[in-house]
């Protein structure tokens, strides 16, 4: 690993997650948790379908897409036929397999991951507009969520030197 000695270290990351695919949600969670682990402040903002990750009813049921996902392969590396992905139960089976693989690497479930991030001082927010669109209330959200924000509120949090906004 090389670092430029003149670079000032990153102080804060603001991460936006707008999708509910297992892999998109995990990208955001890993980035946020990785930041707090390094002593970097982290704000995690969930919007549109990303809200599933912090909605109590949905957070344990996240899937990876087996249709329209070119990275999808059979165990062993052969291409995964799209028609196979359409069969009921296949997507759930594939998602369960992904989750068990992650568990082996000590990657926690979504709920535990959110708890790990807040334990390290990270903050988790929901987008007000998307909440209104999906008719969700604060009670639908997991208790690790710190609040519901407008875009303006979110930008107000993203100020300061050496801050980056990341969209996954």
């Amino acid at each position: 690993m090389t670092t430029n000695g003149n670079d000032k270290p990153l102080k804060k990351v603001c991460i936006i997650c707008a999708k509910a695919n297992l892999e998109d949600v995990y990208a955001s969670l890993v980035l946020a948790n990785g930041a707090v682990m390094e002593g970097i402040e982290a704000k995690l903002f969930f919007t549109f379908f990303g809200l599933d990750a912090i909605t109590k009813k949905q957070m344990h049921k996240l899937h990876t897409a087996t249709v329209g996902n070119p990275g999808m392969r059979m165990p062993g590396g052969l291409p995964f036929p799209t028609l196979l992905g359409m069969i009921p139960g296949v997507e759930a089976g594939v998602s369960a397999m992904m989750r068990s693989q992650m568990d082996k690497l000590d990657i926690p479930g979504v709920e535990e991951f959110l708890q790990m991030i807040t334990a390290g001082g990270g903050e988790i927010y929901a987008c007000k507009l998307a909440m209104d669109m999906f008719k969700l209330t604060r009670e639908d959200l997991h208790e690790e969520v710190s609040g519901v924000l407008t875009v303006g509120d979110f930008y107000a949090m993203c100020g300061g030197e050496n801050t980056q906004i990341i969209f996954t």
């Binding site: 948790n33 707090v36 682990m37 390094e38 002593g39 000590d106 926690p108 535990e112 708890q115 790990m116 334990a119 390290g120 001082g121």
Partner: peptide, 27 residues
């Protein structure tokens, strides 16, 4: 070594780990 394994150590939880070694606890 992972943060999670320390949380499951039975010695401290993750929040206490961050308090004991502030600013990059695992490292």
């Amino acid at each position: 070594l992972t943060i999670r394994s320390i949380g499951n150590s039975g010695i401290i939880d993750i929040k206490q780990f961050y308090q004991l070694f502030p600013g990059g606890p695992l490292k």
